[in-house]
């Protein structure tokens, strides 16, 4: 199995005229010259992926319009603004909050959200005494319909390895310092349940409507690595 896969890496590398591992690891960098004299195809991973896409299209295996539609969904339509609206409604509407905490799938569907990688949702509530933090130590499971695709840090080895053993240390790096009287609950997304943190509503927001509340809610707060503050700093993330 290993040999086959390594062989594949080599094959791809040869076709691309570069060391695949190194090249893909530094995918954002420009083409390197690896001293191969037989360079038929440039080593840029972008071109390697493009070559595969063309092959699959020519074989009639994929439809480019479907690819564009998938990318468009996650680049332009689905993202943390969805989750922010869910959170804001839960803050503004106690009955909705109750439904959200007991049957997240139905409550999120009420807002018009759901689908891929959010088929089975659970919402966990932060309180002055409990702080929830979501991770996937095994891969990168994340609630796409409400948060979009995960950021690089969520998929990174530091976050995946350390969140379970040192959640307070990880939180400190995100600027969240928790007292000893606060219990930390880490949710390792090991199955097909996807978790959304319902952050604490900040003080001083009593007069805000749902839309204004939603504007305060950040992606990081819904993963559990940040708190929501009454005034947003910087751009939405």
């Amino acid at each position: 199995m290993d040999t086959t896969r390594r062989g594949m890496l080599k094959t791809v590398a040869t076709a691309a005229g570069a060391a695949a591992t190194h090249d893909l690891a530094h995918a954002q960098e420009k083409d390197h010259d690896h001293g191969h004299s037989h360079q038929a195809v440039p080593s840029d991973p972008a071109l390697r992926v493009k070559s595969l896409e063309s092959l699959l299209v020519e074989k009639g295996l994929v439809d480019r319009a479907a690819l564009d539609a998938l990318i468009d969904s996650y680049e332009h339509k689905i993202g943390p603004r969805n989750g922010a609206r869910v959170v804001a409604r839960a803050w503004a509407d106690p009955a909705y909050k109750q439904r959200l905490l007991t049957d997240a799938d139905a409550a999120i569907a009420e807002m018009g959200y759901g689908g891929m990688q959010g088929e089975h949702m659970r919402v966990v509530e932060n309180t002055p005494k409990v702080h929830n933090l979501v991770v996937c130590t095994l891969c990168s499971c994340y609630p796409w319909p409400v948060l979009g695709l995960p950021p690089v840090w969520y998929k990174s080895a530091p976050y995946r390895s350390r969140s379970v053993i040192d959640p307070r240390g990880v939180l400190r790096e995100f600027g969240v310092e928790l007292g000893e009287d606060v219990d930390v609950r880490v949710w390792d997304s090991t199955a097909e349940l996807r978790y959304l943190v319902l952050p604490e509503r900040p003080a001083g927001t009593e007069k805000l409507n749902e839309e204004a509340l939603a504007a305060l809610v950040t992606r990081d707060a819904m993963v559990g690595v940040a708190k929501v503050t009454a005034r947003r700093e910087g751009n939405p993330t």
Binding site: A46, V49, E75, E173
Partner: peptide
Amino acid sequence: MGPVQNEKNEPVFHAPWEGRVFALRRAM
């Protein structure tokens, strides 16, 4: 594994090929 690096204003995909890989996997 070192500290967690939180990139500000991160794009959904850092290069177009990442999006193509994402979509090709789902389509196939």
